[in-house]
Computed example of a mutant assay.
Amino acid sequence: MGWLKRTSHPTVNHATSEDIPKPTSAHIEHIPSGTAPLPRYPAAPLSTPDAALQFIPAEEIAKRTSAESGGLLIVVDDIVYDCTQFLSEHPGGEQVIRSFAGTDCSWQFWRFHGKKEMQEFGRPLRVARTAGAKNRFKEPPRYIGLRRLGDEWD
């Protein structure tokens, strides 16, 4: 255990308090990268009808996948929602929303949510409308009504 023993050598200069660098608030995370961050889209007032929302092209929405890129946007039925602040509140967890960042998730959304949730939680997150946003996953077919109801139910 001799290698753990601390000894001083007469020729070694020990640092004084003046030699120790002072901490600064300049961190590597705050060094400008040369590109300005994308601006966030403001939430639309609750009274604004969906048809009156501003239009954002689907290509622009695809770039918005995190807070650093101007907000995490998702699309449900051609309406754009900024879910950046809602991530930590989502009952299904953050990863569910993150997996659809910048894309359409309409059929997945409606499989787990109803109109009441959309009015209560979704409407305050609306920022715009769009067209042409792609869903990465093909919707599986749902088979409903394979049997025909007829006279045999007397």
Rank of each mutant, 00 (worst) to 15 (best):
141 P>E: 02
19 D>F: 08
74 I>T: 01
153 W>G: 09
44 A>E: 03
29 E>L: 05
63 K>E: 13
97 I>T: 07
112 F>V: 07
120 E>C: 03
22 K>Y: 10
72 L>T: 07
49 P>F: 07
142 R>L: 09
61 I>M: 15
140 P>Y: 08
124 P>Q: 03
60 E>K: 12
37 P>T: 02
143 Y>A: 01
34 G>H: 09
142 R>S: 08
58 A>F: 13
12 V>M: 12
132 G>W: 04
110 W>R: 01
131 A>G: 13
80 V>W: 05
34 G>I: 12
80 V>K: 11
44 A>Y: 01
125 L>G: 01
47 S>Q: 14
72 L>Y: 07
118 M>D: 06
143 Y>T: 07
124 P>C: 00
1 M>A: 12
141 P>N: 10
63 K>P: 04
5 K>F: 02
124 P>N: 04
21 P>C: 04
139 E>M: 14
154 D>C: 07
128 A>E: 00
64 R>N: 08
27 H>K: 12
42 P>D: 06
32 P>C: 01
107 W>E: 00
54 Q>P: 13
9 H>L: 11
9 H>C: 12
37 P>G: 06
101 A>W: 07
112 F>L: 11
95 Q>F: 02
52 A>L: 08
69 S>V: 10
54 Q>S: 14
148 R>N: 10
145 G>I: 14
6 R>G: 15
96 V>H: 05
4 L>N: 14
47 S>H: 13
98 R>E: 00
46 L>D: 02
23 P>Y: 03
87 L>M: 06
71 G>M: 10
70 G>V: 03
24 T>R: 05
142 R>C: 10
121 F>H: 09
35 T>Q: 03
133 A>W: 10
119 Q>K: 01
36 A>N: 09
52 A>Q: 15
23 P>I: 11
67 A>D: 07
17 S>P: 11
21 P>M: 00
151 D>C: 11
5 K>H: 11
132 G>S: 06
3 W>N: 09
105 C>T: 09
63 K>N: 06
42 P>N: 06
106 S>C: 00
134 K>S: 09
146 L>Q: 12
144 I>Q: 12
76 V>T: 04
56 I>N: 14
12 V>R: 14
59 E>K: 10
48 T>F: 00
78 D>P: 00
57 P>N: 11
97 I>Q: 00
114 G>Y: 08
36 A>I: 14
57 P>A: 11
18 E>N: 09
41 Y>L: 07
5 K>L: 10
4 L>E: 06
46 L>K: 14
17 S>K: 13
51 A>Q: 11
7 T>E: 15
154 D>M: 12
134 K>G: 02
126 R>I: 15
147 R>A: 15
100 F>K: 06
79 I>V: 13
123 R>L: 10
113 H>W: 03
66 S>R: 02
29 E>Q: 02
42 P>Q: 06
14 H>R: 15
136 R>Y: 13
66 S>P: 01
10 P>D: 07
27 H>G: 08
92 G>F: 01
135 N>A: 03
47 S>P: 08
121 F>C: 12
106 S>V: 01
94 E>R: 00
27 H>Q: 04
38 L>T: 04
65 T>Y: 06
86 F>A: 00
132 G>T: 10
65 T>S: 01
